[in-house]
Design a protein around this nucleic acid. Sequence first.
DNA 1: TTTTAAATGTGATGTAGGTCACATGCCCTT
DNA 2: AAGGGCATGTGACCTACATCACATTTAAAA
Lengths: 192, 192
Amino acid sequence: MEALEVLKTHIAKTTILTDEQFDYVFAHFKHQSFKKGQNIITAGDQVNCEYFVLSGCLKSFYINDDLKMFILQFAMSTWWASDFNALYSHSKATINLDCITDAEVLCLSNDDREKICGELHPMEYFFRWRTNKGYVASQKRLLSMMNNDAKSRYEELLNLYPELYNIVPKNLIAAYLGVSRETLSRLYQSGK
Amino acid sequence: MEALEVLKTHIAKTTILTDEQFDYVFAHFKHQSFKKGQNIITAGDQVNCEYFVLSGCLKSFYINDDLKMFILQFAMSTWWASDFNALYSHSKATINLDCITDAEVLCLSNDDREKICGELHPMEYFFRWRTNKGYVASQKRLLSMMNNDAKSRYEELLNLYPELYNIVPKNLIAAYLGVSRETLSRLYQSGK
DNA sequence: TTTTAAATGTGATGTAGGTCACATGCCCTT
DNA sequence: AAGGGCATGTGACCTACATCACATTTAAAA
């Protein structure tokens, strides 16, 4: 499917735009291709864009002082990714965005998002709902982190996103779940 | 300060409304008073409203199968609280909302929020930004949960919201931090 | 003012998961 | 085809935090 079609279908799930309106919106997105392992956002840099994933898989992650990695999000087709904190508050990135596989994305600048939100009420609505969903998902994950042990968080993740199992290496899954790779490795032995 | 003034000042920090527009918005809010310990949202019930806190302190929390409590949010003056997941998805509440102290709130129904968002573009903008902030805060807390130990999460919380120290009992602070009350009690002995 | 319940402190003990160390296997590059 | 670096498995040991138990203090209610 064409980039235009992917985005159009995605937006149409939440809000209603005429073809002319959508074409206008689409004109603000920049198509980009990245190779596996490539970096899109680097901690410390200025962040100007958010990214709509067309194909491939990204990870957004934080590296702490001990160089330990924590994954905030895996982003696959039709997911949005960025350092939203830095983006909204015009501050330097504290998280990174990398490609787990080759990836195609549509890039939208912060200024252009605000512009089209201001010009098209339905797009303001769209972005409100996108963030709503992100917020609710984040709260759920927080609860899961407090309530559940590593095993059930692992099962919950694979249940929710089975496709990750084949694409994402286990050490990254561990970094998402908030456990060491060794512990994760021991979970799926002997039906423990 | 009057309820009207509190909400007006709060909204004016994010978006611009004429006095007439604000009065129209305000007419959709219902003023309510609650006593300490009173329940506002009960898990299992239908959720119709979100609550803007004028005074006092609320907690939103989840109770797991072992009857253990996990606090998602403390809400004080100018904070918003509800079971947003249930509210947006029109499903039954999975979290509860209770009063830690006597509290005054403004109640806004889901339908009225959508109505005023549809009618007033600046209010759509306001709610987009409110959720943005919530989303970013939730991501930060998730990272802190994964990265930091109980001691530093405790310090981080008191640093961010010093007023909680005097209002909220320690067992509830523990339920927010995701540690047992015993562990929390042991943290602030002997400068450990 | 008395009674009852909630909040807090503290010891003893258990455990999930972390860390370190090293071996093996797999894929990507030249 | 060979080499180098990730990714993964697994043992040994350690630690932060949980749980249980009971004492004590504080606050609310009758």
